[in-house]
């Protein structure tokens, strides 16, 4: 995820302080990994340098960072370009789950057993997400759904693989 583009996008709705930006980011996107304040500072500095944002004003109260940032025309164009650019699909070709399944096959272990245990583990997380969805706002629901669908996809792949492996095993056994 491009933090720079995300922060730029948040500024489009109006000028904000760095602190506001961090809070908005955490609230909408950073459920699992809140931004460090320093990260915000360094990113804004970089965006300023490229002319994508400008300082809209400085709070009189003092302190190190009371700057209000506003997005520039170039910034808006940049956000637009970023949103329009398709994300490269992530192939997930090399992950631990895949490795485990292949190993189970190679060592003659039951793929179904692996599936059930893995699903149980996945479900534990999915239940948490579902529960959060139940009480959260729309953003909560969206982000939880995102995760849920990915988790489900894992399981569906596992199910299909398990079914295929069992078929394969049956063929081998014949």
């Amino acid at each position: 995820m491009s933090i720079g583009h995300t922060l730029l996008g948040l500024l489009e709705s109006g000028p904000r302080h760095g602190y506001d930006l961090k809070r908005a980011f955490d609230g909408k996107f950073g459920h699992d990994r809140p931004l460090h304040y320093g990260q915000v500072y360094s990113t804004m500095a970089r965006l300023l340098k490229h002319g994508l944002v400008e300082v809209d004003g400085i709070e009189p109260g003092g302190g190190p960072e009371r700057k209000r940032y506003a997005i520039t025309e170039a910034g808006i164009t940049d956000v637009e370009k970023w949103l329009a650019q398709p994300e490269k699909p992530e192939p997930y070709l090399q992950n631990t789950l895949y490795t485990k399944v292949v190993l189970a096959l190679l060592t003659g272990r039951s793929a179904a057993g692996l599936l059930d245990t893995q699903r149980s583990e996945h479900l534990r997380l999915m239940r948490e997400l579902t529960e959060r969805k139940r009480h959260g706002d729309l953003a909560d629901q969206l982000v939880c759904d995102h995760a849920l669908f990915h988790l489900e996809a894992d399981l569906r792949w596992l199910e299909l693989t398990a079914a295929r492996l069992d078929l394969l095993a049956a063929e081998v056994a014949e």
Binding site: H122, L123, R127, L155
Partner: peptide
């Protein structure tokens, strides 16, 4: 599984 996620536990 997404529907099953509404459960408290699962039996296979």
């Amino acid at each position: 599984t997404r529907v099953a996620a509404y459960s408290d536990r699962e039996v296979v």
